[in-house]
Design a protein around this nucleic acid. Structure first.
Length: 690
DNA sequence: CTTAGGG
DNA sequence: CCCTAAG
């Protein structure tokens, strides 16, 4: 219980401070005492012991500077309240946190080389995790310290340099309680540098006084936070190669892979240990990365449809899904973007799955015409802003390649298509790009306006700012331009374009003018007050580096903690690009058939069983999906055929649905599986349908 | 993790 | 489909 106490202390401190809280669903878990305690404690013990060993080993090496900062001291204090052997371990970690980066690296090396042997009871993964933990801790702590400005960058670099770090995904707790996620994996996967900083919950107070308190908080976290992410990272990196190879197929396939891989590769020596760690991971997330939702911490590409189950997600990543997922999400992102520009006929949903669709081949359009460029803050957080005093920093994560409308004959070769596309892209670049700035979806024209005047200060609408890349075909920057300019879509950072946005411009060029102002493509929600006072101007210069590649740029690595802190988080806005919902996959008649069949046999209260029975191999259908489908089926069956939409379901099936539904409603779906019951259902069904 | 429901 | 509350 000592541990518990300690935890409590830590948490209390935390809560007083910033109470990052995860989605309720997640939070809920945290409160499950049993799980919580067990997981935490066990994991902590494990960590503690590991940490202890690491300390011993590393003491002589890099970690000697255990207490160089306030934070470390504080951390120690916090720990002091406890009096168990674990205490030391914790201290260690805290101390580690205080150590310098170089320390991190050294430590890691050391660990891998030396400690590995000593910690035999843990498998390599675990060891790595620990190591990573240390590293992360450092980062976190540094954040606490005064090195902020550099920290982020440093981390970035560190990770990049690590040979194995392919897709580190780490969370950070900053002084202000912000969480940052860097998604290099994504970047690498695409060959694009990509850095993501997710939000921040900044609270001035905190900001000012992140000192001990924050430190303390961090300290308490240390043990938890890093592990999860690092664990992932390490394990992922380990199998990265393999994963990559195995992650090309479609969802189902790779899911399968992941499963198998997971079971084979990432498995701590002892199951129990694994479980503990897992639990730890989970709970950890709740606390450390609270606000996953809001902060989109791991969310970006990491948390997808399984966001609700962090661990699961992790698992996926361990097994390569991460990579895959990134691609997938990115694809979706693009698709959605293009949707906005498209002349219609494209719905995000329909496009979602095919990356190729990013390039529109519109037969009706003129050949290879570049309609416009659009920039989208990828993953919502594309533009991260930092405002420190008079400075506002914009971090443009990437620019979306302007949508291209290409007209090619059906018999054109892929090669020719590529060429055309290349030419189109090249043309854009060659002609020069013009950067547009949008605030609240409205183009800002007045170049002389200051950011302050424009409202682009930290607490103002940074999250409503968007940049667009416009082909400089039409040179100018005149006001009129707005309407003439090739379309620019901008995607304001945080929000995503409403899928079903009313905007339905025939030509993209019109989109902006018409659509944005009124129904924002992006931040409609935020438009509220400032709508009327939008200012326009254009900035001709953006971080060039970012513009160069149309593909996606990755500029501004310099996010600092402060930046984060400064970044106002608009609770309302959702950086959806990353959060995208799963692609819609209408049930086919055969699927419905299978579902009906299964429900007839199992009843309506055993979706998991139904899943296994009828959709065992359809990983994209979760039991929740099935349940939902059933729900809709019942509804569908009750409404008139005229009101039904989508692929028509045979009336026969609908009848069965109603019958089964009625039957199981009556029987409360109690003990089932018995044949007679099943027979009863069938019988009842038959009766009803005839 | 599953269920059950609301959105 | 998503999100949550509840087992």
């Amino acid at each position: 219980m000592v541990m518990k106490k300690r935890l409590d202390n830590g948490f209390n401190g935390f809560s007083n401070w910033t109470v990052p809280r995860g989605p309720r669903s997640l939070r809920k878990k945290v409160h499950r005492k049993k799980d919580f305690e067990d997981g935490q404690i066990c994991a902590i013990e494990l960590l503690a012991s590991l940490a202890g060993k690491l300390l011993q080993d590393g003491e002589s090496t890099a970690c000697s500077n255990t207490s160089d900062g306030d934070h470390s001291v504080i951390g120690t204090n916090v720990v002091k309240e406890e009096r168990s052997s674990e205490e030391k371990a914790f201290k260690v970690e805290c101390c580690d946190g205080g150590s310098s980066q170089s320390c991190d690296l050294d430590l890691e090396k050391t660990d891998q080389k030396q400690n590995l042997n000593k910690l035999q009871y843990v498998d390599n993964n675990t060891v790595l995790d620990c190591t990573s933990v240390v590293v992360n801790s450092n980062s976190s702590d540094e954040a606490c310290g005064d090195v902020k400005p550099v920290i982020h960058k440093s981390e970035f670099e560190d990770y990049s340099t690590k040979p194995e770090e392919d897709s580190p995904d780490f969370l950070e707790t900053t002084d202000t309680g912000m969480n940052i996620v860097n998604e290099e994996h994504e970047a690498k996967g695409f060959g694009i540098g990509f850095q993501k900083i997710t939000d921040s919950h900044n609270s001035k107070d905190l900001k000012k006084s992140y000192g001990k308190l924050s430190t303390m908080v961090n300290s308490s976290f240390k043990t938890k936070l890093p592990l999860s992410t690092d664990a992932i990272r390490s394990s992922f990196s380990r199998y990265r190669n393999y994963l990559k190879l195995a992650s090309r197929d479609d969802d189902e396939k790779f899911r399968s892979n992941k499963s198998s891989i997971h079971s084979n590769t990432y498995r701590p020596p002892s199951r129990i240990a694994g479980r503990r760690i897992r639990k730890l991971l989970n709970s950890k997330h709740w606390k450390v990365a609270p606000k996953l939702k809001d902060c989109e911490v791991a969310r970006s590409e990491s948390i997808g449809e399984e966001a609700r189950n962090p661990f699961r997600k992790r698992k996926l990543y361990f097994n390569s899904e991460r990579y895959q997922d990134s691609l997938y999400k990115r694809r979706r992102f693009f698709d959605r973007s293009s949707m906005v520009n498209s002349d219609g006929g494209m719905s995000s949903e329909s496009v979602t799955n095919s990356p190729e669709k990013s390039v529109h081949i519109d037969k009706s359009s003129l050949a290879a015409i570049l309609h416009g460029a659009s920039v989208q803050p990828s993953s919502g957080q594309q533009a991260s802003f930092l405002s420190k005093d008079a400075h506002v920093k914009f971090s443009i994560r990437s620019f979306k390649v302007p949508e291209l409308f290409i007209d090619v004959p059906e018999n054109a070769t892929v090669g020719s298509l590529k060429k055309i596309v290349l030419e189109a892209v090249t043309a854009i670049l060659k002609d020069g790009l013009h950067v547009g700035v949008l605030v609240h979806g409205k183009k800002v024209r007045d170049d002389n306006r200051t950011l302050l005047q424009t409202g682009l200060t930290c607490k103002d609408n940074l999250d409503t700012v968007g940049f667009t890349l416009e082909p400089n075909l039409v040179h100018n920057t005149t006001p009129a331009l707005c309407s003439e300019d090739p379309p620019q879509i901008l995607a304001c950072d945080m929000t995503e374009l409403p899928p079903s946005s009313p905007v339905n411009p025939v030509s993209s060029s019109v989109i902006l003018d018409v659509a944005l102002p009124n129904n924002s493509l992006t931040n409609s929600q935020n438009q509220d007050e400032n709508k009327h006072e939008l200012i326009t101007t254009s900035i001709d210069k953006l971080p060039d580096n970012s513009l160069q590649d149309c593909k996606a740029l990755v500029p501004v690595p310099e996010m600092t903690m402060e930046a984060l802190a400064a970044v106002p988080l608009n609770p309302k806005s959702k950086r959806s690009e990353v959060i995208q919902r799963r692609t819609r996959r209408p049930f086919s008649v055969s699927e419905v058939e299978a579902l009906v069949q299964a429900v007839e046999e199992l009843g309506t209260g055993r979706w998991r069983d139904v899943k296994f029975r009828a959709f065992e191999n359809a990983d994209h259908r979760t039991y929740v999906d099935l349940k939902d489908k059933w729900k809709t089926l019942v509804h569908t069956a009750r409404i008139s055929p005229q009101q039904r939409r989508g692929e028509p379901v045979p009336q026969e099936l609908l009848d069965r649905v109603l019958a089964a539904h009625a039957y199981w409603s009556q029987h409360q779906a109690k003990q089932h599986g018995s044949k007679h019951l099943q027979a009863g259902v069938v019988k009842a069904i038959e009766g009803s349908s005839s």
